[in-house]
Amino acid sequence: MNDFEKRLAEIPLNPAPAGWREAILAAAEKETPRARATIFPWRPVAWGALAACWVLIGFFNFSGPGRGEIHSLAIAPGRTPTAPQMAEYFERHRLLLRWPAATETIFQIDRSKI
């Protein structure tokens, strides 16, 4: 290092402003895992209830027929129905055929009795 370089190296650097230490450390403190844990604190009952809700949602979601299944039944006329499906279909059809007759009896009013 020559004289010129030594002369430069002797120049003291400006110290950090006084308030920076507290501000920087306070900002860093908020990033510590301990500080971040206070955002979602450990409450066993609350977290357990939330987990139970999700289990129930999952159970109801997967217990019934899926949307895809219903959809495929509706839009796949070529698919051969099973015996129970056929029986259910005929039962519904029979009930539907009876429905107009039932409504007719309801709305056929014997005006002579009024």
Partner: peptide
């Protein structure tokens, strides 16, 4: 300079 220094200390805080 302050942003840089603060980011260094935030990273140190996140990953001790």
């Amino acid at each position: 300079a302050r942003d840089v220094t603060q980011e260094i200390f935030c990273r140190l805080a996140r990953n001790p």
